[in-house]
Design a protein around this nucleic acid. Structure first.
Length: 243
DNA sequence: AAGTGGTCCAACCGCATTAGT
DNA sequence: GACTAATGCGGTTGGACCACT
């Protein structure tokens, strides 16, 4: 029996050819998404499941938007990144037709430079401190345990069907929060970096929380907020933001 | 025309996590 | 509980492309 290393060695790598795309597209149309591990066997593609999944997700999927980002998209990415850091899948989830890979690439090639250029150098000023903390925010962090996929009164799978995003249960819950954050941003809601008052907090009388150590963005992280507000009291939960 | 350096993006890799056995 | 396979995410890399010398 061939081991995994040998199996991997047989797999094709590198850029996809149009005929491979066609095979994969036909495969997904026939069998549906998922079961990526069986793709190579069933379709004859000499590609790994991961590779097929990525190709489908980033390129072949219907409604993929290609080409340059609009001013609005760019603006949204910048603002979302300020709030979330390198949570590309979350950011991409708010940009219809855009993939996390695309958003990430766009950030690294266009926006990162732009924001670095526009950014004041580090000073003892608290806002400058905040900006520098954001840079650290990109480091890998453990993901929220999906144990909390279903919270009180909030069926996350249902939400997934409703919003058409398949980001996983918890991520959708975070998405509800993000929706809220984005709405606030759209109305040019002003955050005070030291005395943070968000609609969520106002809603739950958590107003005027003072953060003096952790970067602002950490507290704005939907996972942190979900953990803090979303699971304990049926009256105090992210579900209260659902329409 | 050939060489070089920079930019951009598709794809890969490693890791975390869940689900199934 | 231990193990394995599958899946998803963010970081990184390889190479195509372009501008410049």
């Amino acid at each position: 029996m061939e081991n995994r290393k040998e199996k991997k060695a047989h797999l094709k790598r590198g850029l996809w050819k149009p005929e491979e795309d066609l095979i994969l597209k036909n495969y997904v149309e026939t069998y549906g998404e998922g079961n990526w591990a069986t793709v190579s066997k069933r379709s004859g593609l000499m590609r790994g499941g991961k590779s097929c999944r990525l190709r489908w997700k980033n390129y072949l999927r219907p409604n993929i938007k290609r080409g340059g980002m609009s001013k609005e998209e760019e603006d949204l990415i910048i603002r979302m990144h300020k709030l979330l850091g390198n949570r590309w899948s979350l950011i991409a989830g708010r940009l219809p037709g855009r993939t996390d890979n695309e958003v990430k690439n766009y950030w690294n090639t266009h926006l990162n430079k732009k924001t670095l250029l526009g950014k004041k150098r580090k000073t003892i000023d608290s806002n400058a401190q905040h900006d520098d903390n954001i840079e650290d925010h990109g480091s890998k962090k453990p993901r929220q345990s999906p144990d909390s996929k279903t919270t009180e009164g909030f069926d996350l799978d249902e939400n997934k069907e409703a919003n058409g995003h398949d980001n996983g249960g918890v991520r959708d819950c975070a998405g509800v929060w993000m929706e809220h954050v984005v709405r606030c941003l759209d109305y040019e809601y002003k955050f005070d970096y030291e005395t943070v008052e968000t609609p969520l907090m106002m809603h739950h009388n958590y107003s005027n929380l003072v953060f003096d150590e952790e970067p602002f963005t950490s507290y704005m992280d939907p996972f942190v907020l979900f953990e803090a507000f979303g699971t304990t009291d049926s009256d105090v939960g992210i579900q209260s933001f659902l329409p």
